[in-house]
Each structure stands twice: as C-alpha cells, then as structure tokens.
Design a protein around this nucleic acid. Sequence first.
DNA 1: ACAAGTACTAGGTTCGAGCT
DNA 2: AGCTCGAACCTAGTACTTGT
Length: 430
Amino acid sequence: MLPSRLSDVLSDVEAVLRVFRRPASDAWVKAKHQLEKSLRKLRHRCKEAGTAAVVVAPDDDINEAELKAGPDQAVQVGEADDSASECTSAFPNQHLTLFRKMNEWNFLDDAQKLERLQQAEVATRRPRRSLSQSELVDIINMPAACLAAPQRKAMPMPHDADVECSSEATLAMESCGPNLDLQPRVRSLLLHALHVWRINLFDCHAIEHVLDVVQGQINKFEERAGEIRGAAAGKAWLKIKQAVDELMLRAGAPSSSTLPGEDFAAEAQVQAAQPLKPHRVKPRLERQSGIQNINWSVGRRCWACQYFSNKKGMKCKNTIHYFPIAKFLEQGLGDEAAVDAALQEAKAYREELVRQGKLKPPKPKVYPDSMVRGVYFSQGQQKWKVQLYHPVRRKVVHGGYFCSQEKAEARARELASEFGVQPDIKVLPG
DNA sequence: ACAAGTACTAGGTTCGAGCT
DNA sequence: AGCTCGAACCTAGTACTTGT
C-alpha cells in the first residue's frame, strides 16, 4: 500500500541478502532462506494488494497518510506476514484486510473517522456473547489500522522554537492534528476489543496479524526509546502491550489450549471430558482502581463500588453502586480523563461508606508484601511463601518457602508460566 | 425501549491454622 | 519445613427490577 517506502525496504533487504556471504551456522542459513521466502511473498502480496485495493492514491497523498497512520505499519505487516502465514492458514487474507483498512482510514476525513470509531465503540459495548468472532475481527482491524505508533512523551518546548510535527518529534502524533481526541479513543477501543476477545476465548490466530503489528510498534519504540510506559499515553500503551502479549501467548500455545505447561494438554483433555463449565482464567481487568471494593465494570464502562454486609444471623447482602464515565464524556472530557473523574467519585463514595461504618478503611500492611501474585510473607515461618491457584486443577499449589523475596517472586513467575497464567502484579490497597 | 440499579452466584485470591 | 485445608473476602457475570 506504500509503494515508495516499500520499494526502499525491499531493495534494502535485497542488498543485505546479496552481501550475505559466509553463514556461521545452520541457523543462519535457515534464517536467510526464511528471509528470502518472506521477501518473495511480500512482493507477491504487494502485487495482489495493488490490484485489489479499492482506493489508489497518488504518491503525495500516500506520504501524508503514511505520516498520519504511523510510518512503520506497512513494513511491520510485511514482516508479520510470513510467521503468521505458516500457522494461520485458516485466515489467509487477514493481512490483506488490514492493508485495506489502513488504506481506507487514510482517506477518510475527521468526521468520517469519528463516525467509524463511534460505530465500532457501540459494537464492542454490545453484550459480549452476542458478538461473533468474525464481527470482532472486523472491529479489531479498525483501530489496528488507524493506530499511530507510540511516540515519546512531550517535552517542554522553548518559546521561540518552531513547533513542527516530525517523525521523531517529541510530541505525540495525535496532538498535532485537529482531531485531538482520536488516538486516545483508538487505543481505548483496541484495548477494549482485545479484552472482549480474551474473555470470549476466541481463537487468537484470527487476530495474530493485528497482534504482530501492534507488538512490532511497541518493540520498535522500546528499542529506540526505552520502556513503553515512558511513551506518550504510556499507561494506555502498557495495557495494550500486556493484552497483546497475553493473546500472543495464547496464539502460540500448543493445539487449542490457551495454557502452556508440560502436563497441561493431558489435563485439558481430562477437563474436556468432564462435564464442567468451561474454565475461565480470570484475567486482570483492563483497568484497576488499586482500591479494595472498587473495580472496573467492562460492559457498563463504569467503576463499581461493591461491598458486603455480613452481619451474624443475617443473609450476606451485596451492594453495588456504579460510577459511569458517560456523564464525564458528555462534559467533554477525554476517555482517560472521564475514567479518572469517575474513579474519584467512586473513591469519595467509598470514603463515605467508611464514615458510615459500612466499609472498613483499607487494611494497613503490618508485614512486607510482594507485588507479584502468589507471593506472601508467612508470619509463622518468617519466610516468603509461594502458592498459586492452578487454573486447571482448580486448587492452590504450593511453591515452597524462600528467604529472599526475589527468589520467591522468581518461583511464582515460573509457576505462573507453567500454569499459563500471567504473573501480574497484585492490586495495591489504596 | 433503554439505562441504571439490585440481587445473586460461581469461582478466584489471600492468608492463617494445623497436620505430617 | 513443607504441605494441605478452609474460611473469609473479592471479582465478575448475569438475571431481574426499577426509573426515565
């Protein structure tokens, strides 16, 4: 879709292959052959895409569009192509579809872009069970196609400096254009759609092309500028990275299982044979308040403060109060700002409950705590204890005692990896 | 009709107690 | 010391009710 840039890249690759003389090992030879194969496929795909594309733009327009959509996307799609095509024969045209979406997006005006985004947002808010895999693939392709690559955080600019948007500009791409709110919404939409994908347990191979592209953007940023959390909108990018990594892990998992581990396949078979409900690996939410009793409600797009009145002799009563972000969005706040504002409301409500004695204040920690799931400090033993819930066996597995917190955390991560769950961080009581 | 609120449930997480 | 168990708590999903 980007002929001038693509031809540059292709000739670079060819030049590298030509000067490739003495392979150091079999691995090098293999890598070379794979690269040549990728190149052939890429050329072929470009021809195919060129004839299939609905919109053909003059070079100038393409260059401008390329700048808007993120300069590296087309290349990354190409890079992703080969690896994906090996294992995703069931989804042969996914890259082509993404190309088309990118192309379409680049020639929309702001109003049309906004309209498309809104349509996709509405679609992802439907009850998740009513969304089919193919519908969600279509939705995910959209933000993936228009997602601008991560940029470095804005730095204070000298007053007399000419403010200009360049590829290495210190300003985030989205803040240059007139549509200030577009990229945050794109990121939010992508994140939400990936979350729905994950909880619906859809086949990750169907979106592997998108995962490749997004991961490529993140990796490129991290190689160039350090951790993604340091990028503009770093929080959002970090969440996207975590979501992509998890889905990639699933896509790479053997057979149809989502959980790696040496004995998992056998256990999964046993599980499948049992009349159990399909197991849901409880994922970390796309947002976390960090405060007990306050959690994010994905479907409702709001914070929920939920508490239990558990008096003796009385039936346990669960009360939930919601703090939707919708009203803050109506006030003109951006997505993230609206989420923060709603969270402040929820916090205030929780404090009121504490005053009324309905909720206890957050427990102060009197002993050391680890941020890694499954790592606890055993007061009795005065050691770090590792125990993690096994999602297949459905019971807690003991991982041993350790004198050092680091060793315990390493063991917890190892166990988590064996179980196929993310060794992600605990929620800090606020 | 739709959104927001309530009630309830299943099951995951944490952590202390107690057994071997 | 290592391990298992179980209580308490928490999270997330869903069905139903109520309000606009």
